[in-house]
Every structure is written in structure tokens, then in C-alpha cells.
């Protein structure tokens, strides 16, 4: 189990880095788009450094930024109302948190399976993005990776919480 948690942590952390880079990518695409089109407008189209597809780069950049950060941020990313359960023991609180994690696991795996299915349909139909004509199935498959890791990470967190192995939580 130690090995499992360790590896899930590592994978989640690596995806998290990809997600962070994706966020910076969005930021830079928007800035580049604003600068080039302002230049384009000011020179009446003489200086045309504009590039197509900024809209969908941001759209799918956001998808990867978030889908790839969700596994790593899963345990820190939840809002819980604890007013009515204040007097529960710490043990019951972690146990029930471990239990709820299993739903996240189910969600992650179900999503991964569905996205792979959508991906294979998109592959058959040849659907692409509007401007850059990127085949949609790549996007579905890559998103499925994030969701599968979310499922694994949820299982790992659930185990860690249930067996009180806090030290293994990154």
C-alpha cells in the first residue's frame, strides 16, 4: 500500500505540474492575442502578427489546467460544513472523509470511461475544434487521463485516511 500511495502521489504531482504550465500558457496566449490584434488594429491591418485559435487554446488550456490539478489538489480542495458535527471524534471525522473519498473515486473512473467512449465516437465522426482543426478525440483522451488519476488519487487518499497514515499524504 505504501508503494501504491507513493506512486499515485508522484503521478498526481507530475500531472499537477503540467496543469500549472497549462495555466501559464493560457495567460500568455491571451496576452499575445491582445497585443497582436491591437497592433493589427492600429496599423489598419498592415502589421499582421495575429494568429488563429486563441479562443480554443484558452478553452482547452483551462480544461487541462484544471483536470490535471484536480487529482493533486483533491484533499485540499474540498469545502465541508463542520458545524453540526463539531462534537464527533477525530477518528469518526477522518473515517467519514475516507468514505466520501470513495465517491470521488467512482466519479473519476466513471468520467474516464465516459471520456474514452466519447473520444472513440469523436474519432469515428472526425469532429475537430473550430479554428485549429485539432481532432477532438485527442482532447477527450487526454482529459480521461486526468480523470483516471483523480480516481486513483481518491482511492489512495481514502486508504490513507482510513488507516491513519497521514505521513503518506503529499
Amino acid at each position: 500500500m505504501y508503494q501504491f500511495n507513493l506512486w499515485v502521489n508522484r503521478i498526481a504531482y507530475s500531472l499537477n505540474i503540467v496543469g500549472g504550465i497549462s495555466l501559464l500558457f493560457i495567460m500568455l496566449v491571451v496576452i499575445a492575442d491582445i497585443l497582436t490584434r491591437t497592433l493589427f488594429g492600429m496599423t489598419k491591418g498592415e502589421v499582421d502578427l495575429t494568429f488563429p485559435g486563441s479562443f480554443e487554446m484558452v478553452k482547452y488550456g483551462l480544461l487541462f489546467a484544471l483536470a490535471y490539478c484536480m487529482p493533486y489538489g483533491l484533499n485540499r480542495g474540498q469545502v465541508v460544513v463542520d458545524l453540526f458535527t463539531d462534537n464527533w471524534s477525530v477518528k469518526s471525522k477522518t473515517r467519514i472523509a475516507a468514505f466520501y473519498m470513495l465517491f470521488f473515486a467512482a466519479f473519476g473512473f466513471l468520467m474516464a470511461e465516459n471520456l474514452i467512449h466519447s473520444g472513440s465516437l469523436a474519432k469515428q465522426s472526425g469532429e475537430t475544434t473550430q479554428d485549429l482543426m485539432i481532432p477532438m478525440f485527442y482532447i477527450y483522451y487526454l482529459a480521461a487521463v486526468g480523470m483516471a488519476v483523480l480516481g486513483l488519487r481518491a482511492v489512495s487518499i481514502s486508504l490513507i485516511l482510513w488507516f491513519d497514515r497521514d505521513g503518506e499524504l503529499a
Partner: peptide
Amino acid sequence: GAQPVGMA
């Protein structure tokens, strides 16, 4: 020579 802009 126009710039097509994709937006919602």
C-alpha cells in the same frame, strides 16, 4: 485582410 475573431 480582416482578422477573424473567435469568441462566444
